[in-house]
Design a protein around this nucleic acid. Structure first.
Length: 616
RNA sequence: GGCUUCGUAGCUUAACUGGAUAGAGCAUCUGACUACGGAUCAGAAGGUUGAGGGUUCGAAUCCUUCCGAGGUCACCA
């Protein structure tokens, strides 16, 4: 049995009306039912505008047919009014009691959708193994995790995966720096978290390379390269900035050594592979700690080192099938101009794979493994073009699931000073940030009388749920596609549109429940107040919000709905007595309403990855 | 420059996917129960939704031209 919302029922009956009385097909889901603002009478509004022309009638006449029909078919309307093209209806009292009783019977499941039978794969995080996770990853992780939870609640089977970019020149840089300057330092010997340790050597490499490059710039060789390759009127400084990558590839000593490591790795050199495994192992255990701290996990990990070869096979087959073409220098390309894109390289002239090669292989591997109905890549919007090209290429390859691939593109996180730049040391580290917000929560919760009798561990758990909740909510309440600014010097808010505000509503209800005695049962003779009906309408609508968040891949919809509900409840709580209400019926009904609010808040926050404390 | 995303109160943002008088929070000012838990509530002030034009019963939302900001246009990932 699943919950049927009152809006759904209304939509269906209105749709039936058009079919039966006017013989026109209007899908129930497209019937526009809206809620009504405070100062206009009524509970729901049926928008009549769209049908007026088609039926060549006016709102008043249409309403005078529709309202009796609705009443005849079980919709209890006690009052109605037509304003412009809006038919505003006020429902009978019983409807609200029935709704609440249905919700109560289903508990948390009232807003869980029926199973769709579909498998959705969500890829998120997907870090490189040469640097620790930062604020940008946190946004990715939270969006990915939350989207996965939402899709599951919406009735899908969800598989959470990531691709780990464990291969390539970047990790070789860290390895080389460690070999040269590391003195056998390990996470155990130094007490530094593994990913941070490897990150340290990556930074060290970059700084040594920078020294080498600037020294080179004063040599004769540099001078002649500049003269040979500069653009007209190009300043020396500007040229050297532009030339950096080529220098790394052509002249650099450190660059040469790093590239040799990469070649040795590709050819399976045992010593290099062992070092690679060891250092990646450090990184993985570091990442694992960060994931734990954030409360997220994955069902399956894919490693680029496994999938890139598969991608190359696909390319080779694709050449035979004329999907790809080869240039004189041996490089392989795909022509995407008929899809409004450009030519795209898929294999280098030396036969090695590039980013897109690996992604083609990975997608196919995943489809073989799980046969997904949808694959969602949670990746920043700087890669919009890459994913367009990838999907277009998959389509050219003729895979039947090409149109089931989606890029959930999210905006960058900026600092007040602008972009985060690792070179300038302005990157906000994920581990530091998590610690900081929890400490912040502790600072504001330490005085709380309600936590006095908790054990130290339980207190820590409360601080964690508040601090982490505040951080997660702060990030998830903003639509994913928007870029956002994060000011690390300002502590995360604890008031207003925040997780603690919502958690507080939940905690208040827990306190009510603990104080209420005995069985509570829904009284049938209770007249619902307008404010209570507002809450009921929100509860009723919550399943629809989840569906919409799933369809749009947008957790912010949940974040906003949960806040609206908490706010409405806080208002209600302030204006009405609950445990000391005037009549026993009122006490019972308000308690059950409160309980269902708490349930809904908990479900909603769980979808955002935020836990609810019992006390705070 | 091509493609692309975005532009809403001082700041951060919402708007049920085209619906009614654009709704919140922060910051500012003023108030509220001798606490069913004050991380709360009520009120004031703050808007030509970047600008112009169009589409229609109706536009922050769709189309179009400007203006402004970001991303991307690697044999990097």
């Amino acid at each position: 049995m699943s919950y049927q919302s009152s809006v759904q029922v209304l939509q269906q009956v209105v749709s039936d009306f058009f079919k039966e009385v006017h013989n026109i097909e209007i899908k129930a889901s497209s019937v526009n039912i809206t809620t009504i603002s405070q100062d206009i009478a009524g509970d729901y509004s049926v928008v009549l505008f769209p049908y007026l022309k088609r039926l060549s009638t006016n709102p008043a006449d249409l309403a005078s047919d529709l309202v009796p029909y609705l009443t005849r078919h079980g919709v209890d309307i006690v009052d109605h009014e037509v304003i412009k093209g809006f038919l505003n209806i006020t429902m009978g009292n019983r409807i609200w009691t029935d709704l609440l009783s249905q919700m109560q019977a289903l508990g948390e499941d009232y807003c869980r959708a029926a199973l769709t039978g579909k498998t959705v794969m969500v890829e998120y995080c997907s870090p490189n193994t040469n640097k620790p996770l930062h604020l940008g990853h946190i946004r990715n992780i939270l969006i990915g995790w939350s989207t996965a939870q939402i899709l599951e609640q919406a009735g899908n089977k969800v598989v959470k995966v990531q691709i780990i970019n464990d291969r390539g020149i970047a990790i070789c840089k860290s390895m080389l720096a460690w070999q040269k300057y590391g003195n056998q330092e390990t996470p155990q010997s130094s007490g530094v978290k593994g990913d941070h340790l490897v990150g340290k050597y990556y930074v060290l490499f970059e700084s040594k390379f920078k020294d080498e490059y600037s020294q080179w710039q004063s040599t004769q060789e540099a001078e002649s390269v500049y003269n040979a390759e500069k653009k007209e009127n190009e300043q020396q400084e500007h040229f050297y900035q532009r030339y950096k990558n080529q220098y790394f590839n052509l002249q650099s000593i450190l660059g040469g050594e790093a590239k040799r490591l990469l070649q040795q790795w590709e050819s399976g050199d045992q010593e290099v592979v062992t070092l690679w495994k060891t250092m990646n192992g450090w990184v993985y255990s570091g990442f694992e700690q960060t994931y734990d701290a954030l409360g997220v996990n994955f069902d399956k990990l894919y490693y680029e080192s496994d999938t890139y070869l598969y991608g190359k096979e696909v390319i080779t087959k694709g050449i035979a099938d004329k999907v790809f073409y080869t240039k004189d220098d041996g490089s392989v390309w795909v022509d995407l101009e008929d899809k409004g894109l450009d030519q795209k390289l898929v294999l280098r002239s030396d036969g090695t794979s590039v980013y897109i090669t690996q992604d083609i292989g990975t997608a196919m591997q995943r489809h073989t493994d799980f046969g997904f109905d949808q694959l969602i890549y949670v990746v920043g919007n700087e890669q919009d073009y890459h994913f367009k090209a990838l999907f277009a290429t998959m389509d050219k390859l003729g895979v039947p699931y090409a149109d089931q691939l989606h890029h959930l593109s999210y905006g960058m996180v900026d600092l007040p000073s602008g972009k985060m730049k690792s070179r300038e040391g302005t990157v906000v580290d994920a581990d530091d940030l998590v610690k900081e917000v929890i400490a912040e929560a502790e600072a504001s919760a330490r005085e709380s009388q309600f936590l006095a009798d908790l054990s130290k561990d339980d207190k820590a758990e409360v601080y964690r749920s508040i601090g982490l909740g505040a951080l997660k909510y702060f990030i998830l309440k903003v639509q994913a596609k928007k870029r956002m600014t994060f000011d690390p010097s300002q502590s995360v808010d604890m008031h207003g549109v925040t997780a603690p505000y919502i958690q507080n509503a939940y905690v208040r209800i827990q306190a009510l429940m603990n104080k209420s005695s005995g069985q509570v049962q829904l009284a049938t003779d209770y007249n619902w107040e307008a404010r209570e009906k507002n809450i009921l309408i929100m509860l009723d609508n919550f399943g629809k919000v989840i569906k919409s968040a799933g369809d749009n891949l947008d957790p912010s919809l949940i974040a906003n709905a949960v806040y609206d509900l908490a706010k409405e409840y806080h208002r209600f709580y302030n204006d009405y007595k609950i445990l000391t209400a005037e009549t026993p019926s009122a006490i019972q009904c308000r308690l059950i309403l409160s309980q269902q609010v708490a349930t809904t808040l908990k479900v909603g926050m769980r979808l955002l990855g935020i836990e609810m404390p019992q006390k705070m």
